[in-house]
Simulated scan of single mutants.
Amino acid sequence: MPKLTVGPWIAAQKLPRKNLGRDRLAFLERTALRADAQQVAGLPLIGMGGSCGKPAFALPYLLTWTDENTRRLEDVAAEYGCYVEYGLYPHLKQHDGDLEVAAVQDWTTLAMVYLRPGYERAEELLGSLAAALRPD
Rank of each mutant, 00 (worst) to 15 (best):
D106F: 02
A131N: 14
T70V: 10
G50V: 12
D98H: 13
R72F: 02
Y80C: 04
L20Y: 11
D67F: 05
Q105W: 07
A122P: 03
G127S: 08
A11L: 09
A132V: 04
C52E: 15
T5N: 12
G21V: 03
G49Y: 04
A131P: 09
E85Y: 13
L73S: 01
Y119Q: 07
P60R: 06
R116G: 01
G7I: 00
F27V: 05
M112H: 14
A132H: 05
G49N: 03
A32L: 05
D23V: 07
D98T: 03
G7S: 10
Y114H: 13
L125H: 07
Y61T: 03
G21W: 03
T64Q: 15
S51N: 13
G53Y: 04
E120C: 03
V84Y: 09
V40T: 11
G87L: 12
F27A: 13
T108G: 15
L73H: 01
E68V: 09
D136C: 04
Y114V: 00
M1K: 12
M48Y: 11
M48P: 01
L125I: 05
L125Y: 07
D75K: 10
P44L: 03
V6L: 13
E123Y: 02
V113S: 11
V6E: 10
Y89W: 08
F27Q: 10
E29T: 11
W107F: 13
K93M: 04
V6F: 03
A102N: 02
V84F: 07
E100N: 10
G97S: 01
A41M: 11
T108D: 15
K14H: 11
E100H: 07
V113A: 11
H95C: 08
R22M: 05
H91D: 13
